[in-house]
Design a protein around this nucleic acid. Structure first.
Length: 774
DNA sequence: AAAGCGGTACTTTTT
DNA sequence: GTACCGCTTT
């Protein structure tokens, strides 16, 4: 018997040892879910199961990589390497490449990411002369994506009465038409979008019984992580592959389903017993992560949801300290409270920056936090936002690579044919596109031979097109001769991209240049890695394993998570949305902006199921904390350019009152955000507080009393203000009133601030104080 | 081709 | 408040 099983608790071990048949593992937050998956695979391998017949599907590449590493360290890396382990998208992209010709695709098809898809949709919408307001590319892509995730093809979409009625009523009757054209164009470009990877896998398994049979026999054991986040398309793939032997183990937590908005179907986990009536259920209810108080509070939160699988999470950890609930007057004060608290905890308890995380509902909230952290010289790392692979310059260079590999990739072609500028403008391009359409060939055909397709262009243009085609072809020839790094560098140089960014010396251009260089470095790392582990990449024998083509195979499926260093390794405070924090844990967690309309989001107020998803998100946030959790909310928040009054979130009311301790901050009462140094000194005077910078609030019953935090900054009656007065504003600092206009609710003062320039303040909201009357 | 201007829309996000 | 888009100007 494998002795590593001793490292598991009883329910974990039971779940691991039940290797045959359908198994559902419901794993509460922090209960060792990944551990069970890892050990289960390791256990299968020690029992003699071949790694080639184990399929393990994860939610992210990172999760797959980490799991592979851990399995490797348990039972040996050479075995672990041969496991079929990865995200749905990466595993089935691999299978689709192998079976591509059955579906009419080339095995080197391009994978379009969301931005590529939107670009293509936008082009189509324009060509169809549809109103770009009504047919917003993002919206259309959402509709199409939803359809695909429910296995509704373009034809199905156009023939479905209800869908058509829905689109007509939404005043967007042409979505079905766009869907059809979009799908045609993808096929023509030999490209699949993310959803296609799953959709076409379903088509493959549906239309080719021998292929289905082959993979059913191949994958003797299937494991799916984060099952609560799978969509219908993924569910069906798994169901088909497992249909023969039912050796399917799904792991998940219905309480942590937070991706419903993009098609994840919580019903998949709730309905598992219908598909596999003989299934065995294991519940992991012991939490190893958090204190008793946090676990108790989390249990209390999730009880407010109706639809769920019953479980009672418990822990034998310390009782722990109460959850701090802090009220502040603005997001700036909230941010400096967090920064101060982190600072004093670090000092008092000898902690690392990486022991702290700040979580928020939306990415915009990171700004105020960044400023506060920078002011205190606390190193931090933001996760999310624009990822490396989505930067324009990176996408541009990748587009060259794409076009070299797949000449039919029209999105890549139109992206770079005139970047860097080589005198092939929009007019020329339009002529070429029209000719391609007319002759029903791909754009590349026309560009190779414009005269043959009767495109009227003067000789200069013909020459330029010719030069471009020859350049791409010359790269193509070297695809298997040079490695990815050599060819990539050559392309960056000869395309003129490097020169383009070298010539400019604006900070943006320097930054872009660095990103291009980083991508080239990435190619070099890729080559080094392949040299080290030749088996890692799956390639056919004739291929050069270090080729650009192999590199490009997975690149569309990579994200920042895969490249960014762990905050743990760099010792930085982590800032991220709650969504990105799923699966992670931190000793000290700050959850900011817990206000009605922000969390839960105003956009989820409409439906109960969306509200329940927000509540699960709150549950996820709370359960990230190991030792200490601070929840904060503000009185006012600067949103879309004006002050909004905020109410504490209903989720705070829902917290067990025994688990929380409410407080306000004295020292932040007057600290001012975004101002020149002098104002800060003038604004924050005395320093008095408990160790963590928080002062307990007098217990006055349920809610904290409304704190008079703004005795100095307040709302003035417009009649009290005059032109030439010098006022101070919470955010903008000192300024002079140069104009007063509007009446009643619309009364405004135009103020020239030092450092912020001219601003119009809506006096109904603006909290100011009068410095002198001018 | 790049810079400037005015209008607009604005969750969450991995693949 | 600001990023982004499309349009116009230089």
């Amino acid at each position: 018997m494998a002795d590593f099983l001793e490292q598991l608790n009883e329910s974990q071990r039971n779940a691991v040892k039940e290797t045959e048949g359908a198994v559902m593992v419901i794993a509460g937050a922090g209960s060792g879910k990944t551990r069970v998956l890892t050990y289960r695979v390791a256990y299968l391998l020690t029992k003699g199961v071949s790694p080639f017949s184990v399929l393990a599907l994860t939610f992210t590449n990172k999760a797959a990589r980490e799991m592979k590493d851990r399995i490797g360290s348990l039972i040996g890396f050479s075995k672990a390497q041969n496991l079929w382990m990865g995200t749905f998208h990466s595993v089935f992209a691999r299978i689709l490449r192998a079976e591509a010709e059955k579906l009419g695709f080339n095995s080197n098809f391009t994978i379009y990411d969301t931005a590529d898809s939107k670009r293509l949709l936008k082009k189509i919408i324009k060509e169809q002369e549809l109103d770009e307001k009504a047919y917003h590319p993002g919206f259309v892509l959402n509709r199409i994506s939803n359809a695909k995730n429910n296995l509704i093809s373009a034809n199905d979409y156009n023939e479905d009465f209800e869908i058509q009625l829905h689109d007509q009523q939404a005043n967007k009757p042409k979505i079905g038409v766009i869907y059809s054209i979009y799908q045609n164009r993808l096929a023509k470009a030999s490209a699949m979008d993310f959803d296609d990877l799953l959709f076409f896998t379903n088509v493959l398994l549906r239309d080719y019984p021998e292929v289905l049979y082959k993979y059913q026999k191949k994958f003797k054991y299937i494991l799916v992580d984060e099952y609560q986040d799978t969509n219908y398309s993924q569910y069906l793939i798994v169901k088909k592959l497992a249909a023969d032997n039912h050796n399917l183990c799904i792991v998940g937590d219905d309480a942590q389903s937070i991706y419903g908005f993009r098609g994840a179907n919580i019903a998949n986990i709730l309905n598992f017993k219908k598909d596999y009536p003989e299934y065995k259920l294991f519940k992991l209810e012991q939490n190893y992560r958090s204190t008793q108080l946090i676990v108790k509070a989390a249990n209390g939160i999730i009880k407010n949801n109706k639809e769920q699988i019953f479980k009672e999470i418990w822990t034998s950890n310390d009782f722990g300290e109460k959850i701090h609930v802090v009220k502040l007057s603005s997001e700036a004060e909230e941010a400096s409270m967090v920064a101060d608290s982190i600072f004093s905890h670090k000092m008092n308890n000898q902690l690392a920056n990486s022991d702290f995380a700040i979580l928020y509902r939306t990415n915009v909230q990171s700004r105020a936090l960044e400023e506060a952290l920078r002011k205190k010289n606390i190193p931090y790392q933001i996760y999310g936002g624009l990822s490396f692979y989505q930067r324009k310059e990176v996408k541009d260079l990748l587009a060259y690579f794409r076009l070299v590999i797949n000449h039919h990739d029209e999105d890549a072609l139109t992206r770079i044919i005139n970047f860097p500028a080589r005198g092939i403008g929009q007019t020329t391009l339009n002529k070429l596109i029209v000719a391609a359409d007319k002759n029903n060939v791909v754009l590349w055909e026309v560009i190779q031979n414009p005269i043959g397709f009767k495109v009227s262009l003067h000789s200069g243009l013909i020459k330029r097109l010719d030069a471009f085609v020859n350049m791409i072809k010359s790269f193509r020839v070297q695809l298997n001769k040079l490695n990815a790094y050599e060819l990539g560098k050559k392309i960056a140089k000869e395309s003129g991209m490097l020169k383009h960014y070298f010539e400019e010396d604006s900070p943006e251009a320097i930054n872009r240049k660095e990103n291009v260089e980083e991508l080239i470095n990435g190619l070099s790392e890729f080559c080094a890695k392949v040299k080290e582990n030749p088996e890692e990449t799956n390639i056919s024998e004739s291929e050069n394993p270090e080729s650009l083509e192999v590199f490009m195979r997975d690149v569309a499926l990579l994200t920042d998570l895969d490249t960014k260093e762990d905050a743990k390794d760099t010792n930085k405070v982590s800032l991220m949305t709650i969504h990105s924090a799923k699966g992670l844990e931190f000793p000290y967690v700050y959850l900011v902006g817990v206000e009605e309309n922000l969390f839960p989001s105003i956009l989820s107020a409409g439906s109960n199921s969306e509200l329940e998803e927000e509540r699960r998100l709150f549950y996820v946030a709370v359960t990230r904390a190991m030792k200490s959790l601070t929840i904060s909310y503000c009185d006012t928040r600067f949103k879309y350019g004006n002050f909004n009054f905020c109410e504490p979130s209903r989720f705070i009311d829902e917290l067990n009152q025994d688990c929380i301790e409410e407080s306000f901050t004295l020292e932040h009462k007057r600290s001012v955000h975004g101002e020149k140094e002098k104002n800060i000194i003038a604004g924050s005077t005395k320093k008095k507080s408990s160790a963590d910078g928080l002062t307990p609030l007098k217990k006055t019953g349920k809610k904290p009393v409304k704190q008079d935090n703004n005795s100095e900054f307040r709302i003035f009656d417009p009649s009290a203000l005059q032109v030439n007065m010098v006022i101070q504003h919470q955010r903008f600092g000192e300024g002079k009133i140069i104009e007063i206009g509007g009446s009643n609710d619309n009364a405004q003062a135009t103020v020239v601030f030092t450092g912020f320039g001219k601003k119009k303040l809506l006096l109904k909201y603006a909290r100011i104080k009068i410095k002198h009357t001018g």
